[in-house]
């Protein structure tokens, strides 16, 4: 049996633009954002699903009590998301996952079917990185194959991510529905996407 593709939900940060509220825990159409991301990962068949936690770790864990996910603490979360990605990569390498899909806790409308398309493309084409092209723009979530995990462990900051894509251009999967790209980054985004 081949081991299955793992899921990583990045939920360790503390958003600066959300007026002091922890973004991961904002309710969005009846479900808090991090719960929604983790549930979508599970529904897509990702196994196991690791949630990287940091800021207000206990509250985030509490919000996911009912889901069969595992937690990964990132004590260095304040130094940026690259520290969460690196922590996840170390865990993935130790558990010998063949690939992983990285989900952001603030993109609540990624459908499970999109994740399954990424996995199918990875299986068919052996690409190192697979990303969706959502309504014409490269987006998330991104599937990373195991040979890239060591590189994720060495990334720092945003420039590191760009270098990663320059060195390993993603295989892009077209996806038409722009809602999959919706990101809750500001109170205006939140009002637009999450409040009835």
């Amino acid at each position: 049996m081949t081991p299955s593709v793992a899921g990583i939900v990045l939920a360790a940060g503390q958003a600066k633009r959300m007026e002091g509220r922890l973004k991961q825990l904002l309710p969005c159409q009846g479900e808090v954002l991090v719960h929604r991301a983790a549930r979508v990962a599970l529904e897509a068949g990702l196994t196991p699903v690791w949630v990287v936690v940091g800021a207000e770790e206990a509250r985030v864990r509490d919000a996911l009590q009912d889901l069969p996910v595992q937690f990964l603490s990132n004590p260095h979360w304040a130094e940026g998301q690259s520290t969460s990605v690196a922590a996840a990569a170390r865990q993935l390498r130790a558990s010998q996952a063949p690939a992983a899909v990285f989900l952001l806790a603030d993109q609540p409308f990624v459908p499970p079917a999109l994740i399954q398309r990424l996995i199918a493309a990875w299986q068919a084409h052996h690409a190192a990185i697979v990303a969706p092209r959502i309504a014409g723009q490269r987006g998330n979530p991104v599937l990373i194959s195991a040979e890239i995990f060591p590189l994720l462990e060495t990334l720092t900051g945003d420039r590191g991510a760009r270098a990663l894509f320059a060195a390993h251009p993603p295989l892009e999967i077209p996806w038409d529905d722009p809602r999959a790209r919706a990101e809750i980054d500001t109170p205006e985004d939140y009002a637009r996407w999450c409040q009835p």
Binding site: R159, R162, A163, F165, A166, A167
Partner: peptide, 9 residues
Amino acid sequence: GADGSEIIG
């Protein structure tokens, strides 16, 4: 790269 990405290879 043109987009500012840097690689030391």
